[in-house]
């Protein structure tokens, strides 16, 4: 399969990463049960990881035949700033979720990204973020009773107190 499309920036690095990861996983699959039996827990994992490594090498061969694309730049076409910022923001979200709790973390996450991307006014961003968090909270926490980490806002106590106010003890 000879494709005429040029090689994108970083493609070789990704390709080598794929091969290295596949080989490592193959080694790990071998460690499950070795060449013990056709029915062993490691048989199919060894087959799949070997196939991954093989495909990785075939892709590499194809890639080496292509000429690099000089029109594309890694900082513009592969990893532009918004993508990096978003990846960092999601990581920060995961790190802050436990200590800070669902409501503040989600609000800050949405506010930050919306403000940064849209460049609209603070009033707009705050309103959009708060509205979205409220909607998600109602759907996930109240209707589907998914217990999100509560953090600094004592929401369960508030909910319980309100429940008592309205219905008395159930």
């Amino acid at each position: 399969m000879q494709s005429k499309t040029p090689r994108r920036p970083g493609e070789l690095v990704f390709n080598l990463f794929v091969i290295a990861a596949s080989l490592f996983l193959f080694y790990s699959a071998y460690g499950i049960a070795g060449f013990d039996a056709l029915s062993s827990a490691g048989a199919i994992p060894m087959m799949t990881t070997a196939l991954m490594a093989l495909c990785g090498v075939l892709i590499l061969r194809e890639n080496l035949r292509k000429s690099p694309n000089t029109a594309e730049k890694i900082e513009r076409d592969i990893l532009p700033i918004p993508v990096i910022v978003t990846i960092i923001a999601i990581t920060a979200y995961a790190l802050l979720l436990k200590p800070l709790g669902f409501i503040p973390t989600s609000f800050l996450f949405l506010l930050g990204l919306m403000k940064l991307f849209s460049g609209r006014s603070w009033v707009f961003s705050v309103a959009a973020a708060a509205g979205s968090v409220a909607l998600i909270y109602v759907i996930f926490r109240l209707i589907f009773t998914v217990l999100m980490p509560q953090g600094v806002v004592p929401e369960s106590e508030i909910l319980a107190a309100i429940g008592h106010l309205f219905g008395g003890a159930k």
């Binding site: 109602v138 926490r141 109240l142 009773t145 369960s156 106590e157 508030i158």
Partner: peptide, 22 residues
């Protein structure tokens, strides 16, 4: 209803006996 009100509440209710929340 409780939820919409909860967002407006700022003060903590007095601690009750177990179970005081879900």
């Amino acid at each position: 209803l409780g939820a919409t009100l909860a967002l407006g509440l700022t003060t903590l209710p007095a601690l009750a006996e177990y179970p005081e929340k879900e």
